[in-house]
Design a protein around this nucleic acid. Structure first.
Length: 889
RNA sequence: GGAGGCGUAGCUCAGUCGGUUAGAGUGCUUGCUUGACAUGCAAGAGGUCACUGGUUCGAUUCCAGUCGUCUCCACCA
């Protein structure tokens, strides 16, 4: 680098944008100045979002990154539009997940939760919570999330506990929460129940054992088929279909259950599928949900043979104490020895597994708490059907409705220590069940002080299901008063994987307790997949830590990459190339800004004479169109499309064209031209920064601060509204034609291998576009690399040694002495004529079709006619030139 | 067994009310130290819009079916 360059460098911004420092700096300033607070824009239309609370023991992954980026984009956009904006952050206590993690950690030191006892263990979990909470908050801040930290909540904080107790007691008093002994999903590893949706079904290879069950009177036998032979020890019936002729005579007879030597009846039930297996089913009411139901219908005894530890109980007789799978082997062997094993069939069948730990779920009978779903589901279905709540994309409504329409009661009690304890006490003397928000002094029925609180806690989703209103202070009327305007919230942004777990539950609790929907729109996004299109998972080890990406590339590129090239609801592949493209975009903006600022040394806003030229009117028109379209797309949750449009406008319109157009005017010696160019550069760049700010908050603030501006932060700057901008359609069209001329000339330069530095002499032969070309001369010369340009009547013939191009109404002649290879030039022109021919043919065909003329809208027909005229004109012009050249040849 | 998504350039994806010479990024080819940027500039090649049929003056777009692919739901022992 020479000395003079060094000298310049000192005054300039660095050539490449470095996000380090910038991002942290601005987040801190924003936070310290209270820009995230919902108190800004007081009186503006309210806009509110509640953050899907991340599990407190986890750490952020790309799924959180996309989720929070989308919320942040919407929040920042609305804030800039002057809306009073609230984005509530928070974490979820994540009952099973967190408890399991802490237990695992303790196990390393050989400590079990029982060694500590309930209270000390829960204290330990709180320690963990604090540690991980801080990490998550840090990660959310790194991402740029503009949430109101003053309103931060935790699903297990005091307020949420109050809400949970209120809800529980009210539902209990309404008869919508009940305790009952039913068959539930038991995870033998987590040692707790889980709800139906927490059971994941996947196909596994297994066997279908066909077992011979002899009749008690020795008159025959029934062959039953089962995938779980060990459960036969708890069989209390064999069921056949009432219409099954094979078993018609046997219904009502007794079976002598082998191994147990117990008599059980043969019953008839519609549930049995005659086609499957042998058409006869062994019934184990205590260990199968269907058998349980059938047992109730037929009043069958329930014999529990598998315990909560997944070992056989005393009721299993000689098999007591065996693990369920060891018992399976033993039972099969014993049956085989007795000659009662008919055959073993290999099959693939669905096995239920715990969504947390993957253990095979055991259906067991146990006393648990349930929420009665039917009365709650009804309004939740109605709210979506009548359009009160809208899913984006709409197809997710079907998924939501399908689930609620077939829902079963929700098992909410969990045998854990970490969570909201069930607000129920049992009187040890009279057995009274007391359900109330606070601990009772004594039994209201018998006065006894011997009260025992229910040991269980509630399903995590019971408390997160109240999120949109518990975060607004409910049920505390005083706290609510301040927040009321934010309920219902505007939109819920979340992944499609928790529509059932969370979205549905918030909807029915909101409708029930607030008597109003919790949100108007549900904006569903897909998963972030790896570069090969696989789900990111621990087992595959293909997960990507957003923090590492942010450190390497910055939050802005990550955010931009996560929302571009994607449509609502679809999965997104994480690709480094796309991340690099986003980073390059940052750099592009940085350098465009650098260019603008370098040319502002003598600029004083509002202190000069303005005279908009063609180029100015063109870019301002483009800006208006872009702003309108971006707002429109944001309103439709088409974030990817909005981002693409700001990208295109910035790179293509502003950088590739307008900045280049501004150069001859900045470097010329007309002060009005220079001042006007400066003004438009600043104005358009400022608008770009604002339009881009929701997507890339950090770099936009950094640059905005260096430009002339009003206000303290771009965060609260006014969103560019297209309605308030001016466009100049006529001048923009003229400029567009000039740009077309530039492209045509550049094309010839490239094809003819004209040296980039060589200045051309341009001749435009036209009768229609002369004025526009005259006005655009300064730009055309600069952008096409010309030293002179003349405009002549259309009838003027081209010089012999010239290349020719044609745009609407204009023949462009490029005198290129010595560079024209006659044959090559003819070939080039003929190729273009060929293209025109193809199009002309197509258009003629269309226009000759009487159906098209008669039925297509007039403007479409007109448009095709204009096209045909244009192509024909171009073809004629080029043909003429070819004829001239042929004469020369 | 049901339900849904996806199938468009070598790759990853856009394409909103049916009419565009079907687009972008990336990769590829060619040429460039162009007074912001080589994380760049300019020009270019590259597509039977999975297949078949239907509706229509006209289908990448709407409908039906087929194939491929991914996902969700489901108590068939």
């Amino acid at each position: 680098m020479c000395d003079c360059c060094k000298h310049h460098e000192q005054h300039e911004l660095p050539k490449t944008y470095d996000h380090h420092q910038v991002e942290q700096k601005w987040y801190q300033i924003w936070e310290e100045n209270g820009y995230f607070s919902c108190k800004n824009n007081e009186g503006g239309e309210p806009f509110s979002v509640v953050m899907p609370p991340p599990n407190v023991t986890g750490q952020l992954h790309l799924g959180h990154a996309i989720d929070n980026t989308m919320q942040d984009i919407l929040t920042r956009w609305h804030r800039m539009m002057g809306h009073q904006t609230l984005w509530v952050p928070g974490c979820d206590h994540a009952g099973i997940a967190t408890q399991a993690k802490v237990e695992e950690h303790l196990a390393v030191d050989g400590i079990s939760k029982y060694d500590l006892g309930r209270e000390a263990f829960v204290d330990k979990v709180w320690d963990w919570k604090h540690q991980y909470h801080d990490r998550i908050v840090k990660q959310l801040k790194m991402l740029g999330s503009s949430c109101d930290w003053d309103k931060e909540r935790f699903t297990l904080d005091e307020g949420c506990n109050d809400a949970v107790n209120e809800v529980f007691v009210r539902l209990y008093n309404e008869g919508l929460i009940y305790r009952g002994t039913y068959i539930i999903n038991w995870c033998p590893k987590c040692q707790t129940t889980i709800s139906d949706i927490e059971v994941e079904h996947s196909d596994h290879p297994g066997h279908l054992w066909h077992l011979r069950y002899p009749l008690a009177d020795g008159s025959g036998e029934v062959v039953v088929a089962t995938t779980r032979p060990e459960t036969m020890l708890g069989d209390t019936a064999v069921a056949v279909h009432p219409d099954d002729e094979r078993y018609a005579g046997m219904i009502g007879k007794k079976i002598m259950l082998p191994l147990m030597n117990r008599e059980i009846p043969i019953i008839a039930d519609d549930y049995v599928d005659m086609e499957y297996g042998t058409g006869a089913v062994k019934i184990t009411p205590a260990h199968d949900p269907n058998d349980f139901e059938m047992g109730l219908r037929h009043n069958l005894p329930q014999i529990t043979v598998i315990g909560k530890d997944a070992r056989m109980t005393e009721a299993a007789g000689e098999y007591a104490g065996l693990d369920r799978y060891d018992c399976r082997k033993a039972v099969v062997e014993a049956m085989d020895k007795l000659g009662l094993l008919v055959k073993i069939e290999d099959i693939s069948h669905a096995v239920g597994e715990c969504y947390r730990c993957g253990s095979v779920i055991e259906p067991l009978i146990s006393p648990q708490w349930f929420v009665k779903m039917e009365p709650l589901a009804k309004p939740a279905i109605e709210a979506v059907l009548n359009g009160d709540i809208r899913f984006v994309p709409q197809r997710f409504e079907k998924i939501y409705l399908g689930w609620l329409e077939n829902i079963r009661d929700w098992c909410i009690s969990r045998q854990l220590w970490w969570g909201h304890r069930i607000p129920v006490w049992y009187c040890q003397d009279c057995g009274e069940v007391i359900c109330q928000k606070t601990e009772p002094e004594c039994c209201p029925k018998c006065g006894s002080h011997k009260l025992q609180r229910d040991e269980d806690v509630l399903d995590t989703w019971f408390s997160s299901g109240l999120w949109p209103f518990e975060t607004m202070g409910w049920p505390d009327a005083e706290k609510m008063a301040e927040m009321q305007k934010f309920y219902p919230t505007s939109v819920l942004v979340t992944g499609r994987d928790i529509i059932f777990f969370w979205v549905a539950r918030m909807i029915f609790t909101g409708l029930h307790f607030m008597e109003e929907k919790p949100f108007s729109d549900v904006f569903i996004h897909g998963l972030v997949l790896d570069a090969q299109g696989r789900k990111m998972s621990k087992s595959l080890g293909n997960g990507i830590d957003p923090i590492e990406i942010i450190e390497q590339y910055g939050a802005d590129p990550l955010r931009f990459m996560l929302i571009t090239g994607n449509t609502p609801g679809n999965d997104l592949r994480f690709q480094t190339e796309r991340l690099e493209a986003s980073r390059n975009f940052c750099n592009k903006i940085w350098n465009a800004s650098r260019f603008v600022m370098m040319n502002l040394t003598d600029y004083q806003p509002g202190k000069g004479e303005l005279n908009y030229s063609l180029a100015d009117k063109w870019i301002l028109s483009e800006l208006k169109a872009a702003a309108a379209s971006i707002s429109n797309n944001l309103g439709k949750y088409e974030l990817g499309e909005a981002a693409r449009q700001i990208y295109d406008f910035t790179w293509d319109c502003f950088c590739d064209w307008y900045i280049e157009m501004s150069k001859p005017r900045l470097y010329g010696n007309d002060p009005v031209e220079r001042y006007t160019a400066q003004t438009v550069l600043v104005e358009v760049l400022t608008s770009i920064l604002k339009l881009l700010h929701p997507f890339m908050p950090f770099i936009t603030e950094e640059i905005w601060q260096a430009l002339p501006h009003e206000g303290e932060t771009i965060m609260l700057a006014k969103w560019p509204e297209a309605d308030k901008m001016t466009d100049y359609p006529e001048e923009a069209a003229v400029m567009a034609l000039n740009m077309e001329a530039v492209r045509a000339i550049r094309n010839i330069r490239a094809e003819m291998n004209v040296q980039p530095g060589k200045k051309l002499e341009l001749i435009f032969a036209t009768d229609t576009a002369a004025e526009g070309l005259q006005q655009g001369e300064i730009y055309i010369k600069a952008l096409a690399g010309a030293e002179s340009m003349s405009i002549v009547p259309a009838s003027t013939a081209a010089p012999e040694q010239a290349a020719v191009a044609h745009i609407r109404g204009v023949d462009i002649y490029l005198p290129l002495k010595g560079l024209i290879d006659l044959d090559k030039e003819i070939a080039r022109l003929k190729k273009e004529i060929g293209n025109m021919d193809k199009e002309i043919k197509r258009l003629e065909g269309k226009l000759n079709n009487s159906g098209f003329i008669a039925k297509a809208p007039a403007d479409v027909v007109e448009g095709e006619k204009v096209k045909l005229a244009d192509y024909s004109e171009k073809k004629a012009s080029l043909l003429e030139r070819v004829a001239e050249l042929n004469k020369l040849a």
